[in-house]
């Protein structure tokens, strides 16, 4: 259970995030958590809830708001993903998600950097922060002063792994090599945006790069080896999106679960227009700032305590 001082810090963090977005003209939204059908994603297992599902992220509802005329929205909400429990995972966790129309993924990297630097500056009493804009986590001392590093996935594999990224994708070992060989090196001296993921690698909602369709315009932010945020230039072509959902639905079926085509989202998708979106793990950010090593130490109460 989080102490009153810890709760105060978490509250201050949430308010600092809200202030950042409100000052920039974003609307805070609170979309439903319980949905009749989710975006099909074979690697996420939802909790069933009386003929509906608890959402695994607010993406579907937020994209419908974008299609309906919103151009800058953010949300802080709980998300639910069955069977996820580890040092960096809880089946119920807090997500910050935001979208900005007219932007691409590079614009979002810049804003994400600005957000975290400002939030950290507004919370100087956090145990994980050291003087001179640094963050200490485990053995790592990370300098938060911008600019942060930008590294393509191909470059990262070349630098830290034994195999090239193309071969890792071909042999089905991309996730394993990323986790064991690449991630521990990411964001150790300063935060790093890992970007341009192989198009096959998840991200069925990200746009392919026009100059190089083999990669998707997707990035992940790493600080001290911890993956903190995932963003992309959104795919807004309903035809391509339908094909990708269809493939993903087949993957979900192969895993023995059910999934449906999100027809209402597809019907409105062409009205979204060029947009970039990003999701950030609030509990993980809180963990890094507080200097904890398990996200369970950053939430008011975690499941095993209930």
């Amino acid at each position: 259970m989080l102490s009153p001082a810890g709760l105060r810090l978490r509250s201050d963090l949430l308010q600092a995030i809200r202030l950042f977005f409100l000052k920039r003209g974003y609307i805070e939204v609170d979309t439903p958590l319980r949905l009749p059908a989710l975006i099909p994603e074979s690697h996420l297992i939802p909790f069933a809830s009386e003929g509906a599902f608890l959402h695994t992220s607010p993406e579907l509802c937020m994209k419908r708001l974008l299609a309906n005329g919103c151009d800058r929205i953010f949300q802080i909400c709980h998300c639910f993903r069955k069977e996820e429990r580890g040092r960096l995972h809880q089946a119920e966790f807090t997500m910050l998600e935001w979208y900005h129309k007219g932007w691409d993924y590079f614009d979002l990297m810049r804003q994400c950097e600005e957000l975290i630097v400002q939030v950290a500056q507004s919370l100087p009493s956090c145990a994980g922060l050291v003087e001179g804009n640094g963050l200490r986590w485990g053995d790592a001392l990370v300098k938060l002063a911008p600019p942060w590093e930008r590294l393509t996935v191909a470059e990262a594999f070349q630098r830290y792994a034994d195999v090239a990224v193309t071969k890792a994708v071909r042999t089905g070992s991309f996730d394993e090599i990323l986790v064991t060989e690449v991630e521990p090196n990411l964001g150790v001296d300063r935060p790093v945006f890992l970007y341009d993921y192989p198009a096959e690698q998840g991200a069925s909602l990200a746009r392919r790069k026009r100059e190089n369709p083999a990669v998707a315009e997707r990035f992940e932010l790493y600080i001290a080896g911890v993956e903190l945020a995932n963003g992309f230039s959104e795919l807004v072509d309903p035809l391509e999106q339908r094909q990708r959902f269809q493939r993903e639905i087949e993957n979900v079926h192969r895993a023995g679960r059910t999934a449906e085509m999100p027809e209402k989202l597809l019907a409105e998708l062409s009205q979204v227009g060029e947009t970039a979106g990003i999701a950030l793990g609030v509990d993980r950010l809180c963990m890094l700032l507080m200097g904890h090593t398990d996200i369970a130490q950053t939430v008011p109460l975690f499941f095993e305590e209930l």
């Binding site: 690697h43 580890g86 986790v179 998840g202 991200a203």
Partner: peptide
């Protein structure tokens, strides 16, 4: 035991 799951990737039980 360690649970890990890269973003948009599959769960790995190490």
């Amino acid at each position: 035991f360690d649970f890990s799951k890269p973003g948009k990737g599959q769960a790995l039980y190490r």
